[in-house]
């Protein structure tokens, strides 16, 4: 069985984890075009090489980031999301007209 090193809990069987998608910046939903939004929601980069991904340790509901090489399936390193997200990501609320439509 593959082992993932959870930043909170240490080495655990991969069966205790769930994949959560690529780490990508979310476009501002208020100003993004339909094409940009569809790209964000439905399309993946499918990079060959080291990618940055969200993973969840299910037993503790702990989300963290793993760098994984898609060419050889090796987990290169894992770290808490606070290492790259230093501030809360917020978007302005849609204006009154859009919000009530």
């Amino acid at each position: 069985m593959k082992i993932i090193h959870c930043p909170l809990n240490g080495p655990r069987n991969i069966s205790e984890f769930v994949y959560g998608g690529e780490v990508v910046d979310m476009p501002d939903p208020a100003s993004a075009s339909d094409a940009e939004w569809a790209d964000h929601v439905f399309l993946e980069n499918n990079t060959r090489g080291v990618v940055r991904e969200w993973w969840l340790h299910v037993a503790t509901a702990y989300w963290f980031i793993a760098e994984r090489d898609t060419a050889n399936e090796e987990i290169v390193r894992t770290y808490p999301s606070s290492d790259i997200f230093k501030e809360r990501v917020t978007f302005a609320a849609p204006d009154e007209e859009q919000g009530t439509s």
Partner: peptide
């Protein structure tokens, strides 16, 4: 402390 899977359930 170990937070892990025992008999496939989280404990």
């Amino acid at each position: 402390i170990a937070q892990t899977s025992v008999a496939r359930m989280n404990v």
